[in-house]
Design a protein around this nucleic acid. Sequence first.
DNA 1: ATAGGGTTAG
Length: 644
Amino acid sequence: MNRAAENLCLSLLSNCRTLRKLKQIHAFVYKSGLETDPLIAGKILLLSAVQISDAIDYARRLFIHHPNPDVFMYNTLIRGESESDSPNNSVSSFVRMLGESYSPPDSFSFAFALKAAANLQCLKTGFQLHCQAMVRGLDTHLFVGTTLVSMYGECGYVEFARKLFDEMNEPNVVAWNAIITAYFRGNDLSGADRMFGLIPCRDLTTWNVMLAGHTKAGDLERAKGLFLRMPSRDDVSWSTMIVGFAHNGCFYEALQVFRELVGSGNRPNEVSLTGVLSACAQAGAFEFGKVLHAFIEKIGFVWISSVNNALLDTYSKCGNVLMARLVFERMPGKKSIVSWTSMIAGLAMQGYGEEAIKLFHEMEESGTRPDEITFISVLYACSHAGLLERGHEIFSKMTGHYNIEPTIEHYGCMVDLYGRAGQLHKAYNFVVQMPVPPNAVIWRTLLGACSFFGDINLAEQVKKRLSELDPDNSGDHVLLSNIYAVAGKWKDVDTVRRLMAEKNMKKTPGWSMIEVDKIMYRFVAGDKLNDITEEAYNKLSEITLKLKVEGGYVPEVGNVLHDIEEEEKEDTLSKHSEKLAVAFGMARLCKGSTIRIVKNLRVCKDCHSFMKSISKVYKLDIVVRDRSRFHSFKEGSCSCRDYW
DNA sequence: ATAGGGTTAG
């Protein structure tokens, strides 16, 4: 009878995919008095520690309450913890195991604990484990040796990894894959390629290692070539390509590979989904993001926190905080630091400073310790909402209460905080007194503020420092020349322009994107004519006329670089990519639907008032995400309250 | 039960 119950439990467990279901089965196991059955306890631990995402806390509790865990259970816990958010727990479990006389660590224990050291990139821990393995004569074990190669590679000691590899008795394909990965880790692409040529036989992982190595190095052409050449592909190959494209800003390609993946009859896994969602977030592909959301609900990935985090980020980067908030509130289990930080950043981008700070306090109360990224998001929220006092408080809290050493990015946020508020000299003094030497980004932030508030004297001073640090940056010259243009100092404008021409500096072309029928269209300022741009230009002149007549729109020519005739200036302005994108959206989208634009640079003052005017005259909502924040235009005003 | 893919900011 007990035998029958045991078989029933085992068969239930073999089909278990979610923590929810596992808990139900676990309850049944208790009812049947089988909780100490080694086979069943081992399987439940394996599921919660390794096979089900985000269930490691459950696994730990289960382990603690289990009397005399065997070697398998120890190894399973060490394994699960090595891949969790805190791999140091894995090392602690290993140390605890060392103290148990009845279950000494075996080759598996070492392999998993070494994996934790690799994930921690902690050479000291790895080396200590290596020594322990030598004492027990396990360092020559094939699996342990392979993980040692991998660990040293991960910790940046590629030469040493190579030495161990050369000393291995008969390295198999897995060991070869580990040494190739180590070469990539050390940025030695030709070394990796050389080993790829020497390897006696290749398996699927060998190819996947090559894909990952080249996408991480930014060589997507090479990766794509390998992807097409490889004899077969699995879900890791697909997700490597999707994530690789997404990380390198090639969202179009990322979406395309995802479509191919689905088109070829495969079911995307959670990694492909997080990758493609990240591409949607960057591109602002709201409609496609919603399709993915539906898909995620349908196949039950709502239980995976990484997918939820990516989804939350997609909604907030597409300008829909309400949906982001909904995903955030409905997330199962404990919210991770990534969930909190993404939600805070989402509110910050919309200018909801108070709400972001409120959420930050909720996070603190929930017992999740904010990290340096969280503070960047909160400080960003303060600077974009003009909350000087709060920004100051939070900065002090970071250093005082949380003992987090500010990085140059945190100082950048503070400069931005003062700069955006127009306290330019306070910002300047802050930069001069910073304990870290200011870099180009810091000075550029200040130059941007000088440009917004038209402080020519300070701008010239700041530009001098920038010329020392990053003399060939075109954006800085454009900013300076804009400052002169606004002040009508055309001689100075000319000097800057000539310098730019002499040095052959190219302006970063501004582009804007808009999604129509789940396809992203990209417009570049002064684009050549084709069917799409012609449609946009035609609609744009119609809109401009209507705005001038009915909305009292007057082009603000101050931001135009050249000292040319008024009419010509207006012509340059009218080619700004965000205007083309909006016009295209108005021509193509259903009447009354919100227009969503993503722009790579910051929106100019003229385009800003143009959008306001459209929202009033056409009674249309427009959401523009620029380099720095969201602008939601409604009934003639913008959510940024002209503070950007 | 060794190797390969993962979401947050700048």
